[in-house]
Amino acid sequence: MITLTIDGRQVEALEGSTMLEVARENGIDIPTLCFHEALEPYGGCRLCVVELLTSRGSRLVASCVHPAEEGVEVRTDSEIVQKSRRMTVELLLAAAPNAKVIQELAAEMGVEEPRVKLGDNDCILCGLCVRACKEIVGANAISLVNRGFAKEVKPPFEIGSNACIGCATCVFICPTGAVRLEDVLANRSVHERESDFESRPCKLCGDHYLAAELRQDYEALLAEEAV
């Protein structure tokens, strides 16, 4: 066990924990977007930053990925942390103005109209879909394509993937609804019709494809939403 100070309190933590884990264990709420317990931390959205105080000054680190170290002092909600989170959310709102989760975060933090327009794409590039497809499902059907502002989530050659097993984990894990079930199902049916299609099991549960019962449930859900 190691000891550290978080928001003025001395706490104990298991060695090897991340700052985010320590915070949550101690009832401290830190917002996240690209973090998921079932996946390796990514450190991309920067919403979970906390202030790390060292002898040489302080700096912001992503709590989802920064290790808890013996004797460190951390502040999870200081002014510098708040300013950073507000700017992150403002920028996300400027790029994904219609994403509900971003609108909610903005409202919570008092972020109003972004001062610049950066686009209107529900995908915030948190990478959860890609990472889940790789780490949990093992299908590797989609990936992060291009670089920088042009970065997107796409299947190979932007056509569709026959590595996709239609489990729809990407749809569930997406925080903004940018990944749509219709696209996953459409991709599946295209490949089911092609003669070279070969079904693959999920790495975690071993199921080979979207079970017929589940598919019916999803289709019903979609029909409901359309009404």
């Binding site: 991309g44 700017m87 610049v116 291009n146 502002f149 970065k151």
Partner: peptide, 22 residues
């Protein structure tokens, strides 16, 4: 910087884009 940003993190990907627009 915008051309070379890898695009992984929000502050760089979107922050430098906003700066470039301005």
């Amino acid at each position: 910087v915008q051309e070379e940003s890898c695009g992984k993190c929000v502050p760089c990907r979107l922050g430098t884009k906003a700066m470039l627009e301005v």
